[in-house]
């Protein structure tokens, strides 16, 4: 017994010595992290702590954490029809966006991979990335011009065909199609990078064998390409579901007009409107926190599903 205790004491001493050695050897590495860790605490974690404002009353000049505890903001927004309409808009827009813009990059990547002229393939690929680098402000300005009822290219075409000009950017019915198509335009080429990487890592032997067996190009896609990239597709799908509530808020804010507010007011724009424009800080924080928590639940549960089904997880 005594011997054992002595041994642990010795072990403790050894560990202490090794800890000392560890820090003497690596202190520079720890020192490097000091500034970034302070950055994380101040700019990322302090605002997280600031979310308590959802349960506290904000008074101007009394600090960002509020003054007294209260649940009134939760009661208020749960009864607010504007909140439920924003939640519904968020879900409808993001689900339709997922349904349309999830498969398109996959199809694009598969077809691009079938292009045999290498130079042409490269050119298409490079140009397809371009919209990803353009600011949302520019995208929306261009859309405004192209879709303008008086001078826009599209409406001139409609008028030339004998139709009436359509106020695309100002009608609720057109809001979602325009949002979703502009996302297609901006991100198809970019998202396809990941699928193209997955396709190029398929062993060429598989395609050769399929060709030997007389498979046409279409059959090769169906029986070789698609099954091979399925794990990547699954991971991407799960990641997308996890981020379902985070729409392109900035783009929607730019597209927001009083006329289409019935469908374009999503949770994030509501938080912006109520919080920063009307300075109703606690109320907006409560709404933001609610959607943040739902987002967190979506991410963690979709990640758990992914781990179980594919063995892949994103963290």
């Amino acid at each position: 017994m005594a011997k054992k205790a002595a041994l642990t004491a010795e072990e403790k001493a050894a560990r202490k010595r090794s800890a000392k050695n560890h820090f003497r050897r690596y202190w520079v590495l720890y020192a490097m992290m000091v500034l970034p860790v302070i950055y994380y605490i101040v700019f990322k974690y302090l605002p997280m702590v600031g979310s308590v404002l959802a349960f506290r009353r904000y008074r101007p000049g009394m600090g960002p954490f509020g003054t007294e505890w209260t649940l009134r903001y939760w009661e208020r927004f749960l009864k607010d029809p504007a909140f439920w309409s924003a939640l519904r808009n968020t879900v409808i827009t993001s689900v339709s966006n997922l349904v349309i813009n999830f498969p398109i990059p996959i199809i694009f990547a598969i077809l691009l991979n079938e292009v045999r002229a290498k130079k042409f393939k490269k050119v298409v690929q490079t140009i397809s990335y371009m919209p990803r680098f353009i600011s949302t402000v520019v995208v929306i300005t261009i859309l405004n011009e192209l879709l303008s009822p008086s001078s826009g290219m599209i409406n001139q075409l409609i008028v030339a065909c004998g139709g009436e000009p359509i106020y695309f950017m100002n009608q609720s019915a057109w809001f979602r199609p325009i949002y979703i198509l502009s996302e297609t335009w901006q991100f198809t080429g970019w998202t396809a990078i990941i699928y193209l990487a997955a396709i190029t890592s398929i062993s060429p032997d598989l395609f050769e064998a399929a060709e030997m067996d007389g498979a046409s190009r279409l059959q090769q896609i169906w029986y070789v390409t698609i099954p091979s990239i399925l794990p990547t597709v699954m991971v991407m799908l799960i990641m997308n579901v996890g981020h379902l509530l985070s729409l392109g808020f900035e783009k929607i804010l730019l597209m927001y007009t009083p006329a289409n507010s019935g469908v374009s007011d999503i949770i994030d724009t509501m938080v912006y409107r109520v919080g920063l424009a009307q300075q109703n800080y606690s109320y907006a924080t409560a709404i933001g926190l609610f959607s943040g928590i739902i987002g967190l639940i979506l991410v963690t549960s979709s990640n758990a599903v992914s781990k179980k089904l594919t063995g892949e997880s994103i963290y």
Binding site: K44, Y45, L46, P47, M48, V49, G50, S51, L53, P64, G242, D268, V271, Y272, G275, L276, Y281, A284, T285, G288, L289, G292, G295, L296, V299, T300, Y315
Partner: peptide, 11 residues
């Protein structure tokens, strides 16, 4: 996966 949100961050 989780952030402080627009308003607390601003404040």
């Amino acid at each position: 996966f989780f952030s402080g949100g627009m308003i607390p961050t601003y404040l």
